[in-house]
């Protein structure tokens, strides 16, 4: 067995353990846990049987298994970055709305201020 295979297997093993733990503590949803379990099981299978990945790659017209994994990885990352951007933008918008609401609900009005000051003097 090659060192890289051991490394990947160990990584997948611990990742699966983490998913189990998160699921038990109800930090992640069942569907999230399912998706990630499939991903890490896939990693485990590919690292144990590199030829399996090559076979899948060939069947979709890609020469090497590792290339297919890279292509898919890049796609997933791109979409994740895009989603993170959109999410961030949404959060910023929500924050602005919140700040605006708070500002408008508590205006400082000059006359009132003077009146409250003169009251204090009295």
């Amino acid at each position: 067995m090659l060192p890289v295979q051991i490394l990947l297997l160990a990584f997948a093993f611990f990742a699966l353990l983490r998913i189990g733990m998160q699921l038990r503590r109800k930090v992640c949803t069942r569907s999230d846990a399912f998706v990630w379990t499939v991903v890490w099981l896939g990693v485990a299978v590919v690292s144990l049987l590199p030829n399996a990945a090559t076979w899948v790659a060939n069947s979709v017209g890609v020469g090497r298994g590792s290339d297919l994994v890279l292509y898919i990885g890049a796609l997933v990352l791109f979409s994740a970055v895009f989603r993170a951007f959109a999410r961030l933008h949404e959060l910023e918008k929500t924050l602005t709305e919140l700040v605006r609401k708070q500002a408008i609900e508590h205006p400082k009005i000059p006359d009132q201020e003077e009146r409250s000051k003169s009251k204090k003097v009295l």
Binding site: V99, A103, P107, P110, E113
Partner: peptide, 12 residues
């Protein structure tokens, strides 16, 4: 405020 404007404050 002292100059006579209404003031709205964005907390951040």
């Amino acid at each position: 405020l002292r100059a006579g404007a209404h003031v709205l404050v964005h907390v951040v």
